[in-house]
Nucleic acid binder design. Structure first.
Length: 346
DNA sequence: AACTCGTGGTG
DNA sequence: TCACCAAGAGT
């Protein structure tokens, strides 16, 4: 039996029951695909529920504010997904008259929709023969065909896409694409794949050559930087000061306490040298360190060594205040959310 | 084209 | 503990 047919048959009996599989509404499929980018299904499920209920149509999403969308996205990470989702919803409503794109080529024009997501929506909703290539597909194909081209190299990306595109030619694209992904996550897993009961074991070249554990090949070029964050938490009993992050870096458009970022650990004395404590009412105030040991927030490319400094003062005139009771209205990074939970309970 | 973007699970 | 990974995309 052909490769695609084995997977399609396996899928009939083993597919996962996921909420978006009850629908072929491209808006819902789009939501699910964006939420699941680089995200485990279990982690995304609650967010899918929130977004489909809070924004039942693409118009509802377009009519919301970005702050509102980011608040609903809070905690899921990779926040550009939420910003692009919102932007594209407005694009669909304003430029496309509310008509969702129906082809791979048109879907690719949406911000936040790349090759994978365009292929997924086109195949699942419109039965277009465009092969998805996600982490699961890289793993299944690299093992079955024993391909050691690095999957994160330009050569590898091109090679696997072309191979996947050949394999889908005689298949039912909607079922086949979802089949190979489910298969990759349930059977051909990164660690401890269940080769003993695998329906593709007979033709699997990696299994025959005992190379399962060395495939897929990935170039690693990750260097983690250490950064030192000092958040200044003003507290007059009822209110505090927060600001919106700008620029294109991490947590863009999310809220945080005023931040003093340094390349090295700082003591209180050095911290007071910073501009924030000059020319304003925070000169000569009492400041206390909330956490003596830094909280180390680990991101993919950086470790944030974080201290929270508390300033209790009633003398705030030149800043806009935010009431503590309203603090939950703002989208904040997980790090800030964790602090708020700790601070609240004390 | 290398680098960046979050958070959580896994062994 | 730590490296690796997760329905990738933008710049």
């Amino acid at each position: 039996m052909e490769f695609y047919k084995i997977l399609e048959m396996w899928y009939l009996n083993n597919q996962r029951n996921l909420p978006w599989r009850n629908s072929s509404n491209p808006y819902f499929i789009w939501l699910s695909e964006i939420i699941l980018q680089q995200t485990r299904i279990q982690q995304g499920l609650d967010y899918y529920k929130v977004f489909t209920e809070h924004y039942p149509t693409v118009q509802d999403l377009a009519n919301a504010s970005e702050d509102e969308v980011l608040k609903d996205w809070q905690g899921l990470g990779y926040y550009s997904r939420a910003r692009n989702l919102h932007f594209s919803a407005q694009y669909i409503c304003n430029e496309l008259n509310g008509k969702f794109p129906t082809t791979y080529k048109e879907l690719l024009k949406l911000k936040g929709v790349g090759d994978y997501t365009a292929s997924a929506i086109a195949s699942i909703c419109f039965n277009e023969k465009t092969a998805v290539v996600d982490g699961n597909v890289y793993r299944v194909l690299s093992r079955y065909f024993n391909i050691d081209i690095p999957i994160n190299s330009p050569k590898g990306i091109k090679y696997f896409k072309e191979l996947a595109q050949e394999l889908i030619q005689n298949a039912n694209p909607k079922n086949y694409n979802q089949a190979i992904m489910d298969f990759g996550s349930m059977v051909c897993k990164p660690q401890n794949p269940t080769c003993e009961t695998c329906v593709l074991a007979d033709g699997c070249m990696a299994k025959a050559k005992n190379l399962i554990n060395s495939l897929p090949v990935k170039e690693k070029k990750l260097k983690v930087k250490n950064k030192f964050f000092n958040f200044i938490v003003i507290d007059n009993g009822e209110s505090t000061i927060i600001e919106k992050r700008t620029g294109n870096g991490i947590w863009k458009n999310l809220y945080q306490f005023p931040l003093i970022e340094t390349n090295e650990p700082v003591n209180q004395e050095t911290l007071f040298q910073h501009d924030f404590f000059k020319n304003n009412e925070f000169k000569n105030v009492d400041i206390s360190l909330f956490n003596s040991e830094p909280w180390i927030h680990k991101l993919t490319h950086q470790h944030l060594h974080t201290h929270f400094w508390i300033i209790n003062t009633n003398n705030i005139k030149n800043f806009e205040l935010t009431a503590w009771k309203n603090i939950d209205d703002y989208a904040v990074p997980k790090l800030i959310h964790n602090f708020l939970e700790e601070y609240k309970s004390k």
